[in-house]
Amino acid sequence: MKTKMPKYVDRFTDRLGKARYYYRRKCGPRVALPGLPWSPEFMAAYKLAETGQGAAAPRGTHAILPGSVEAALVRYYGSDMWQEQAKSTRDLRRPILEQFRVKYGTGKIRALQRNHVQQIIAARSASAQSNWMKCLRHFMTWAIRENLIATNPCNDVAQKKKAVTGGFPPWTEADVIAYRDKYAIGTQARLTMELMLNLGVRVSDARQIGQPHIQNGVLTDYQPQKGRTTGGHFINVPVHADLARTIKGTKVTGAATFLVTGEGNIYTAKYLGQKMREWCDDAGLPECSSHGLRKLCLTRLAEAGCSPFEIMAISGHKNLKEVTIYTEAANRKKLALLAMAKLAGVALNAALPLDKLREAYADATGTQPTMAEAGA
């Protein structure tokens, strides 16, 4: 008795007498399916083909070779490790893996060596190399788990060092004033900015937060998007007065989120980031970005005298080293003021927050601190 095929699957016999299976819907491309019909490997590839994520067979002649990199990738796309990654991560990594498939797809996965990985990343920028290595390491970790390879070919691959640029520049207080002057309370542009500035969240979170997340004036038990697949911390952040006024003064049309598109849909992170770029440009702030707001929030906390652990409770950081960047910068500014005060023969209270220390310095010396004195 013949096995009944899943819908849209065709069976062919090649010149060697081996059965080949392909998914094809209407006039769409043919996608090769590995293994036998209804097997786990077969159905994983079938589900990908149904959603348009499968790899089309070129000119109807392509067959996935057992034990190849391509066969492993098909299984990987249907695995729990692939699906557990955030959609934004999968969207970033899939094109990288498809490029890797083009170069090494027909080769045996067990034959992959460090020099192959080194070769494919060699001409890329430091940033691109970093993305490629994160992607391939995850894939190879899965392959080791599935006993497809014995050692990880990504080990000891040499990478270019990224230039130390400091990343996205933080907003200044003057930038915030200029932006608020441009966008009044009641506009989406203003609400978007206030959400990120006063909660310290990324644009990927600002798009998701809504009234259901606010309980008794606190953003309650919210897990930032970036850490959801890696056990990130939940945060509980009291709503700042500036944000509370903005929410109250804005007509909210979304049931689940504060921010929605003109069609009433939740923003994607990419689209909201693009809108923020447009709003900043229109406000005459071309150097400002969404992530720079989060940096200003953390800078404010550090300059108010918060400890790294207090900042981490708001930011959701798991890495203490990342947060100490802000506290160390704030401490340098305070130390510069205290040093100049000693030179002027003035005693200041080092326990004061930075803004109060600046006021005390100005009052004691009868001057406003210069840029050098303030450590700016």
Results as ranks from 00 to 15, higher is better:
residue 347 A to W: 02
residue 281 D to G: 09
residue 262 G to Q: 11
residue 320 L to D: 13
residue 312 M to T: 01
residue 310 E to T: 14
residue 249 G to F: 04
residue 303 E to F: 00
residue 237 V to W: 05
residue 333 K to N: 00
residue 290 S to V: 01
residue 289 S to I: 07
residue 261 T to F: 03
residue 278 E to I: 12
residue 291 H to G: 10
residue 253 T to M: 12
residue 330 A to E: 04
residue 313 A to H: 00
residue 325 I to P: 01
residue 334 K to H: 05
residue 226 K to P: 08
residue 283 A to M: 08
residue 230 T to W: 01
residue 299 T to K: 12
residue 261 T to C: 05
residue 336 A to F: 03
residue 251 K to S: 12
residue 318 K to Q: 13
residue 286 P to K: 02
residue 277 R to Q: 14
residue 276 M to N: 02
residue 291 H to C: 09
residue 345 G to C: 05
residue 275 K to I: 02
residue 275 K to S: 12
residue 296 L to K: 01
residue 345 G to H: 10
residue 248 K to V: 07
residue 250 T to M: 04
residue 243 L to N: 06
residue 297 C to M: 05
residue 234 F to D: 11
residue 328 E to P: 03
residue 343 L to W: 03
residue 317 H to E: 07
residue 323 V to H: 07
residue 302 A to G: 10
residue 288 C to A: 15
residue 291 H to F: 11
residue 298 L to Y: 11
residue 313 A to L: 08
residue 264 G to D: 02
residue 274 Q to N: 14
residue 236 N to Y: 00
residue 315 S to P: 01
residue 337 L to I: 15
residue 338 L to Y: 04
residue 263 E to S: 15
residue 237 V to L: 06
residue 231 G to V: 11
residue 301 L to A: 15
residue 287 E to M: 12
residue 341 A to M: 04
residue 263 E to P: 01
residue 240 H to R: 12
residue 236 N to K: 08
residue 228 R to P: 00
residue 271 Y to T: 15
residue 342 K to A: 13
residue 336 A to H: 03
residue 310 E to A: 15
residue 344 A to T: 02
residue 335 L to T: 14
residue 298 L to C: 12
residue 255 A to I: 11
residue 320 L to M: 14
residue 281 D to T: 14
residue 279 W to P: 00
residue 335 L to M: 13
residue 225 Q to Y: 11
residue 227 G to F: 04
residue 260 V to D: 11
residue 317 H to K: 02
residue 261 T to S: 09
residue 283 A to W: 03
residue 320 L to C: 02
residue 336 A to K: 11
residue 312 M to P: 07
residue 321 K to C: 00
residue 296 L to I: 03
residue 315 S to D: 04
residue 230 T to D: 12
residue 239 V to L: 08
